[in-house]
Design a protein around this nucleic acid. Structure first.
Lengths: 388, 388
DNA sequence: TCTGAGTTTGTTAATCTACCGAACACTGAA
DNA sequence: TTCAGTGTTCGGTAGATTAACAAACTCAGA
């Protein structure tokens, strides 16, 4: 049936067909009258468009939806043959690969922990990721149309602009190498996107920022980072370095000189734990071994932990103020190993309202899955853009 | 001849005609083949479009342009009847009103100093501005088509979003009142835009940022402010407060608490002069009476002045780093009474390269005219958008 | 100085594409 | 049966295109 259906790499469809395709991908199955209303088209146009899209195997007609009265209408949805995309996450400690169809349904997913001693993307991480890819692609099989796009989320700057900015500690080479070596056909576009940016997109599409087209995603964990979404689109900056808030001048006062990336050294979770070890007295029980433990102690009401968490919240709030004073986002979504913690929220809010105007501040809704999901959704967007 | 030619308020032109109109406004006079090439249209289409636009008195045919060989082509340009716009600047010490045609040519201009004791927009300022408007409109007369848009540049937040954020010290009411009372027909749209944003747009269209679609304009004077241009468009933020960098947390260090708008208190020119008065010794001659004088002393090599200027440059550089770390603009344009000074440039650059990556930093090319020019160009853009 | 040759501009005529409105035929439930 | 929606057919229109031709200008050579 399907020997080589020539994946329609570059369709040349009329505006109306593209609109239908897009609508079905983003809003799910619909009937012809629904599509016509949503897109401002006439029924005769739909009569011309739908058979064409079905011939191309981009759209399939499913059941029927009947209203209260009148003839029942045929339901259309994106065909399985419309294709799928891959979202890949590579971090220092974890790799994830997910395949979704163009309408956002998950087809396959795998993940694996990576035992990393260094905080870089090792060769081991790269080969683990490649294996995960192969497994996922095998699981997807032939029934889901062509693979249309791959987005790799990594703690580096995006690949699209080939400039060299030394920011994060990870060598981009490893990731670029991974992008080049992925077990996918040569004509499938693969890009690398910053992991924080991916998480931001995910929170926008599926999470805490669904009704906010302009917002920032502030990730606080071992490192700190910022994803900026403006009018629904990621902001990258001239060198792909926008959101590198680790570089904010800190400490900064009439008497003190900022140091390079001094803010990260102060706000990163390692610094937090170092401060913790310093002030922790033996009467408090064992010293918390990681941030997680510290927050649990604080949640139990342990006063030293509480003080540390409060101070950290205040510091994060001040960082948020720094971002707000530049961008005035309507919403700040907190994420990352530390930032995710609900316990921080009151302190962050207190700090922002003290120094600036009121702005909504929330914790991300997707947790650690945000990054892959964001990657996959960026891939979907790119695939649809290319298709239409 | 022209009793009431019914200003075509909302044309309903085909795509091609709009393109031609836009092109003529933004790129000046052109022949039909030139327009066709630029817009990707065919010559027969131009044959249909041009007479139509001339009938509407939006376009006029001027001389002829002949190439090296072949028939000479007729030159077309925007007709005088296409209309004009007003740019209005109201500050604490100065008011300016400028009228331009839609292709950016100046038609009339007036300005006046306002003797202000307080740093707010007084009733006197408002009435002075109204008078200037009347004079400019009288000078424009009837020969330049309908007035299509008015933009008021003021040190407040933009009017488009009716939210209340207490940022700058000026009461927005005075400006809104001015916008409502301007001596222009009721159907002419009037908006208020932040003065720093206006200056940024001017530098983009006519000044130091002409080949940079994404950049920031950092104004440093009595106050500090930031205009953000992304992909050629102003960024406003959720409350129209983007660029309110006066709110950046400062002082900010492990030992110090930021204060509200503490950065402006430290970086504003008043603070600079206060520090100057403090360290100035009698041997240095008379204490500089304003920032201007201080910079002149530094230019002469006076060492105390030099030190103060260098420190100020460093501080501005750190502010720039704060902005860069969020946005990664490809270019930072410095403006404002203090920022304009070439003497600051080396120090600012030193500070930014010490703390972040290389980014181009320049001084604005338009000086104090940037603000009105920006207002007028925003008005032109709005008029063209509405027209097309 | 006149006269083509060559080149570019502008116009005319015939199409083409992508849509719409109106009229009508087709379900399906009350 | 009737009524209200769904889907199709037919003809029409707006906005563009290509192809062919007429008009205007330069230059070279007789």
């Amino acid at each position: 049936m399907n020997p080589a259906p020539t994946p329609p790499s570059r369709l040349d469809l009329p505006e109306s067909s593209r609109g239908v395709l897009r609508r079905l991908a983003t809003h799910g199955p619909a009937t012809r009258p629904q599509l016509a209303r949503a897109l401002g088209l006439s029924r005769p146009t739909m009569s011309a468009v739908m058979p064409e899209l079905m011939n191309l195997e981009l759209v399939s007609s499913g059941g029927s939806s009947r209203g209260a009265t009148g003839r029942s209408a045929v339901l259309y949805s994106l065909a399985a043959g419309a294709g799928h995309v891959l979202g890949v996450e590579v971090g220092a400690t974890r790799a994830r690969v997910v395949a979704h169809s163009l309408d956002g349904e998950q087809i396959a997913a795998r993940e694996e922990r990576i035992s990393a001693r260094r905080r870089t993307i090792t060769d081991a991480a790269v080969s683990t990721t490649m294996e995960l890819c192969e497994k996922v692609l095998a699981e997807v099989g032939d029934g889901h149309g062509p693979l249309r796009d791959v987005v790799i989320a990594a703690p580096t700057k995006p690949s699209t602009k080939p400039t060299s900015v030394s920011t994060s500690g990870l060598q981009p080479d490893g990731v670029e190498q991974l992008a080049a070596a992925l077990p996918v056909p040569d004509d499938v576009p693969v890009i690398v996107e910053n992991n924080v940016n991916c998480a931001a997109i995910a929170e926008h599409r599926l999470g805490a920022a669904q009704n906010q087209d302009t917002f920032v995603y502030l990730q606080v964990g071992v490192k700190i980072g910022l994803g900026i979404v403006i009018d629904g689109k990621l902001m990258h900056g001239a060198h792909g370095a926008s959101g590198e808030v680790a570089m904010m001048p800190f400490p900064w006062s009439p008497g003190e000189e900022p140091t390079r990336a001094g803010l990260e050294e102060y706000l990163g979770s390692e610094a937090l734990m170092a401060r913790c070890a310093e002030v922790w007295t033996s009467g408090n029980g064992p010293v918390p071994k990681d941030a997680e433990a510290l927050f649990q102690a604080a949640a139990r009401g342990q006063s030293t932990a509480r003080r540390l968490v409060d101070q950290h919240a205040t510091d994060i709030g001040r960082l948020a103020v720094g971002v707000m004073s530049v961008l005035d986002p309507g919403l700040v979504v907190l994420g990352g190993g530390v930032g995710q913690n609900q316990l921080l929220l009151p302190g962050v809010r207190r700090a922002t309202t003290a120094l600036a105007w009121d702005t909504e501040i929330t914790v991300g809704a997707l947790g650690e899955h945000a990054t892959v999901l964001g990657a996959v959704h960026i891939a979907i967007t790119r695939a649809l853009d290319r298709l239409t």
